[in-house]
Computed example of a mutant assay.
Amino acid sequence: MQLARRLPALLLGLTALITTPGVAAASPASGSIDLPPGMTASWTVLDRTTGARSGSGEHQQYRSASVVKLFIALDYLESHGPGYSIPAGDLALLEPMLRSSDDKAASTLWVRDGWEQIVVRTAHRVGLSDTEPPARRGMWGHTAISAADIVRTYQYILTEATPKYRDFIMSNLRQSTKCGSDKFDQSFGIPGALPRPRAVKQGWSGFGDSPAGNEECTEPGRAETPDTPEVREAVAAVDRDSRREARADAADIDLTSRAMHTTGTVGANDEKIVVVLPLEPTTLSWSDSATRITDLTRAVSTAVSTD
């Protein structure tokens, strides 16, 4: 697939240049920055105050990893009326899923609420042009997304969703934990590059649990899904279905490279939406990838302010 290789001329005025080894700062003549060797990335940044927008490869499809949990939460909330009170059992799923990217919670809600139909409904409701369900319905992390569609999802949550549900999603994203429920350090990208206040939903795939360089996360995130029969049954159902043969009409997305996506908003009033979807070589360590992606996020976020 063709993935974006260069960031546009918006970055000419950057004062905080990427310093990671292998990242080449552009000369004034070229007005661009080369991505690190082996990295491919698409991104979109929207300043909601000024309307300025910048991006590269905005409609390129990627596997979602845990970014799809935004769809799972939004679909759950919007399937109920605005007066609905979330029961304690469902809060115990939604909160760790949004804050600590809990996979067991996601699998439970995914199975209970219709599997891939969650993606179908969300794409229709929000107006997403690049989003597709996973080829194997159990593989919710293989949902196809794009940077443009995730920016649109945040716009919908912030301006069109029921205020009660908007506040629920965004308040939980503002409480994003450093360590995920699986002990993966999710402080790369936006949390490492941009100041608070911020609301963050991360996604990663291909690094395994607690990879080398991730030693600060020896304990899971503060929010963790209770181990109940419902959760165990849903996780088993997802695992069984994930082993089935993929449909022939699956989206053409890279399922091999390591993904470490960073998405969210920055500012007291969510003034800026930032979505960066990178893919990294399987030979690169977690710590090197985290540094590269954090530097890239800092650069592209600054770029929109120079538009």
Rank of each mutant, 00 (worst) to 15 (best):
residue 42 S to L: 01
residue 67 V to L: 04
residue 195 P to Q: 06
residue 281 P to H: 05
residue 116 E to A: 15
residue 235 V to T: 13
residue 158 L to T: 06
residue 181 S to L: 01
residue 194 L to W: 02
residue 44 T to G: 15
residue 211 P to I: 09
residue 70 L to V: 04
residue 96 P to C: 05
residue 103 D to F: 09
residue 205 S to I: 02
residue 56 S to E: 09
residue 237 A to P: 04
residue 201 K to H: 05
residue 161 A to P: 07
residue 195 P to N: 08
residue 82 P to N: 11
residue 147 A to G: 06
residue 202 Q to K: 05
residue 43 W to P: 05
residue 25 A to M: 10
residue 36 P to A: 12
residue 271 E to T: 05
residue 235 V to N: 04
residue 88 A to W: 06
residue 188 F to M: 04
residue 84 Y to G: 13
residue 294 T to I: 05
residue 286 W to R: 06
residue 60 Q to W: 01
residue 171 S to Q: 11
residue 203 G to M: 00
residue 42 S to T: 08
residue 203 G to Y: 00
residue 98 L to R: 04
residue 119 V to R: 10
residue 19 T to R: 14
residue 153 T to N: 03
residue 192 G to N: 05
residue 12 L to R: 15
residue 37 P to M: 03
residue 190 I to F: 00
residue 93 L to R: 07
residue 119 V to E: 02
residue 238 V to T: 12
residue 268 A to K: 11
residue 78 E to M: 14
residue 262 T to Q: 07
residue 22 G to I: 08
residue 278 P to T: 09
residue 6 R to D: 14
residue 43 W to G: 12
residue 205 S to M: 02
residue 182 D to K: 03
residue 222 R to L: 12
residue 52 A to D: 15
residue 80 H to G: 10
residue 138 G to Q: 15
residue 196 R to D: 14
residue 224 E to R: 14
residue 157 I to Y: 00
residue 133 P to F: 05
residue 151 V to L: 00
residue 4 A to R: 12
residue 180 G to P: 00
residue 263 T to F: 04
residue 213 G to M: 08
residue 303 A to Y: 02
residue 211 P to D: 11
residue 95 E to P: 02
residue 17 L to D: 11
residue 76 Y to A: 00
residue 199 A to I: 06
residue 15 T to D: 15
residue 190 I to W: 03
residue 199 A to M: 00
residue 16 A to T: 14
residue 138 G to K: 14
residue 139 M to L: 15
residue 253 I to Q: 06
residue 86 I to Q: 10
residue 240 R to P: 10
residue 131 T to W: 01
residue 126 V to H: 11
residue 56 S to I: 01
residue 232 R to H: 08
residue 158 L to Q: 06
residue 249 D to L: 06
residue 79 S to F: 09
residue 26 A to D: 12
residue 176 S to I: 00
residue 180 G to M: 03
residue 17 L to H: 13
residue 221 G to Y: 02
residue 270 D to Q: 00
residue 187 S to W: 12
residue 140 W to N: 12
residue 126 V to N: 06
residue 15 T to C: 11
residue 300 V to K: 05
residue 262 T to L: 00
residue 195 P to S: 08
residue 66 S to N: 02
residue 184 F to G: 07
residue 253 I to L: 09
residue 167 D to Q: 07
residue 87 P to N: 05
residue 306 T to N: 15
residue 167 D to C: 04
residue 276 V to H: 02
residue 107 S to M: 15
residue 226 P to L: 03
residue 55 G to A: 10
residue 196 R to A: 14
residue 75 D to C: 11
residue 76 Y to I: 01
residue 70 L to S: 04
residue 290 A to M: 11
residue 295 D to W: 09
residue 249 D to W: 07
residue 200 V to P: 03
residue 197 P to M: 02
residue 204 W to N: 13
residue 267 G to F: 01
residue 265 T to M: 10
residue 269 N to K: 10
residue 14 L to K: 07
